[in-house]
């Protein structure tokens, strides 16, 4: 192969990656049927304990405050609608927020794992996005790793005395980033490269998807800060009921 044609092909490939993926840059879900059986089953089995724990924790909360059930149902619908919104991305194209950080901070990670799983089912069936056989893997990356990371980051940065907006930004952005790294991890485990094995494959997937996912994480971080600012300014009472804000923060 002559060098010219080769570099041209590489250029065309890069262009396709740049233009095919951002055109539809939803949060990254592994599509239906993409994972081999053993991996699909493994991730489903790994997600199950979190879902069971989530259902149990929701049940316990409902015993004291039964009105929260309606709240959770609407929160799920809210997360679904959020994922269907178009978010102007830093690169100029459009992407879709995941709502992982927002949900984790508002409702806590345990409830988010159950709600996230439900939202993923709806996305698969109503929007043809994601899938049933890959539901376990997607739940693990988007409804378990994402919210837990976001919540952990939020709590730690707050404890370190960081301003509220920074904690929210970091929680949303890192929650998004870790979600996509987990997905790349899952794909690389299922499809190790012939040369270089798992690591080579992991790096490959990370680089390819970084094109869309890094701008998305930054945009979502910014957006979540704007959302919380509006909420804190006009709806501090509701936030307090959800116990997101402590009393002092509201007064500031």
């Amino acid at each position: 192969m002559s060098g010219k044609i080769c570099s041209m092909l590489a250029f065309v490939y890069l262009l396709t990656v740049m233009f095919v993926s951002p055109a539809n840059a939803y949060a990254m879900h592994i599509m239906e049927g993409f994972l081999p059986v053993q991996w699909a089953v493994l991730w489903a089995v790994l997600s199950l304990p979190f879902l069971i724990a989530g259902v149990i924790s929701i049940k316990r909360t409902l015993r004291d405050r039964p009105n929260l059930k309606m709240m959770l149902g609407l929160a799920g619908a809210f997360a679904f609608v959020l994922s269907a919104l178009k978010l102007p991305s830093v690169t100029g194209s459009c992407s879709h927020p995941t709502g992982v950080g927002l949900g984790a901070v508002l409702f806590g990670p345990a409830a988010m794992s159950v709600l996230g799983c439900i939202v993923l089912i709806f996305q698969a069936i109503l929007l043809a996005h994601g899938g049933l056989s890959t539901l376990g893997a997607n739940t693990f990356s988007m409804a378990i790793v994402g919210p837990f990371v976001a919540y952990g980051v939020y709590k730690i940065t707050q404890k370190l005395g960081a301003p509220f907006w920074l904690a929210v930004f970091l929680a949303a952005a890192l929650g998004d980033l870790l979600t996509y790294v987990t997905t790349s991890f899952q794909l690389a485990l299922a499809f190790p490269a012939e040369v270089g094995g798992f690591m080579a494959s992991f790096i490959k997937f990370n680089t390819i998807f970084a094109v869309t996912q890094v701008p998305l994480a930054i945009s979502e971080g910014l957006l979540t800060v704007v959302v919380f600012n509006v909420l804190a300014a006009y709806n501090s009472q509701e936030l307090q009921e959800l116990s997101v804000l402590s009393k002092e923060e509201v007064q500031i």
């Binding site: 039964p66 009105n67 059930k69 309606m70 709240m71 149902g73 609407l74 929160a75 619908a77 809210f78 609608v81 959020l82 919104l85 978010l87 102007p88 927002l102 508002l106 910014l222 957006l223 704007v226 959302v227 919380f228 600012n229 509006v230 909420l231 006009y234 709806n235 509701e238």
Partner: peptide, 27 residues
């Protein structure tokens, strides 16, 4: 670009509060 972030932020927070109140009304 700036406007769209502000608008979308307002849209989402409004939607959230609306769903919150709706859930209380439903209950």
């Amino acid at each position: 670009f700036r406007n769209s972030y502000r608008s979308l932020g307002q849209l989402i927070s409004n939607l959230f509060i609306k769903s919150y109140h709706r859930s209380q009304m439903l209950f």
